[in-house]
Design a protein around this nucleic acid. Structure first.
Lengths: 194, 194
DNA sequence: AGGATTAAACCGACTGGTCAGTCTAGTAAG
DNA sequence: CTTACTAGACTGACCAGTCGGTTTAATCCT
């Protein structure tokens, strides 16, 4: 018995590459078969459908991101450092998994009713994390009172767009945008650094 | 001869409704046929393909938005007022054409190679408009020096996300978010209002 | 006028290619 | 011999686009 889980993982990795490059609808299950060096029977032994493969990739990545985010926030005491840590963690992860990032941020959008809901939830989930932090910051007086839900969503949108642009252009290193992005985001909620 | 152009317009309007609701791939050409109350022959008389109908909708809307934006910017003298006018114009247009907004901001994303390029260009186009304004503002000393390309893209991302959220939730009136959004954006580039 | 002619606009049954998912026949390991 | 997995040929549904035919209306001719 060749290790089941290894084949499964190989299929997922192959799927990630193909989905990232071609998008959901232009990806043929046979593309994944070829890319993974397995067979159709094998793919359908490990996954019930093409859709589930796609969802598995999305869930894995978003769960990982959320976990890392929460960890990095917990690892810092002060609000400002928490934000720094969270931002750094996000960029690092996007940079490390560029393919998965593209799948989650680009390829999972506009897929119609089935995926629409899920996609919204993801953004809401991350907005909520940020919003909670902002509420906290207002309460302890680090930033002025403001509409935290709007600010949180705007942050998510801004970050997404920056990452997507990096995904396409691949310009240098995503981490290098951190200082400018950091200043931008902090200013946006009323923290003037220098 | 029933006015040719009227049928064409009816088909486009129907397509906008269906595409907005179902997304590109889940929309059947026959859905558009039924929704428009015409026929398949008629649809293919006016348009060469499903894809072209979709692109026609996108182009119409983005061109309109760009025109309105440039007009509103030209109508104001001072940098800050220009930004206000542009923002107000955008929100107004999104609000007015919610279906088309959804098509451009959501349904046109993640459609694979054919649309990917075009979609990027649209965001770049609007980023460029904002960036030019920011460069100007730095030059005349209204805002501190900063990475305008990043700020411009972040603005586009932030605005998109806010609008998309409104598209899904339909919460009240998009225009009502203007004050908070305005403060957020202005702060982000170093303008402290109150 | 009104009849004939023509072309644009419209109609919808049909087709042909595509592809997700199935199925039968395997192989390897214990 | 059984369990876990792999293989890839095959099938059936689906749907964009086609095509032969009909309607509509504008123009010309007597």
């Amino acid at each position: 018995m060749t290790d089941t889980n290894e084949t499964r993982t190989r299929i997922l990795a192959a799927a990630a590459r193909v989905f990232a490059q071609k998008g959901y609808h232009e990806t043929r299950v046979d593309d994944i078969v070829v890319e993974s060096g397995s067979s159709k029977g094998s793919v359908y032994f490990h996954f019930p459908s093409k859709e589930r493969i796609f969802l598995a990739l999305i869930d894995t990545f978003t769960d990982l991101l959320e976990t890392r985010l929460r960890e990095s926030i917990l690892s810092e005491e002060h609000g400002l450092q928490q934000i720094d840590a969270a931002l750094q963690t996000s960029l690092k992860l996007f940079q490390q998994y560029r393919g998965l990032a593209k799948i989650v941020l680009v390829q999972a959008v506009g897929l119609g009713t089935a995926f629409e809901e899920r996609r919204r939830q993801i953004n809401t989930r991350f907005s909520a994390i940020i919003q909670a932090r902002l509420e906290q910051a207002i309460k302890d007086g680090s930033i002025p009172a403001q509409q935290t839900d709007l600010a949180a969503r705007a942050w998510v949108g801004a970050l997404n767009e920056i990452v997507i642009h990096w995904i396409y252009t691949g310009e240098t290193d995503l981490q290098e945008t951190l200082p400018a992005l950091r200043s931008f985001l902090l200013r946006s909620i009323g923290i003037v650094t220098e």
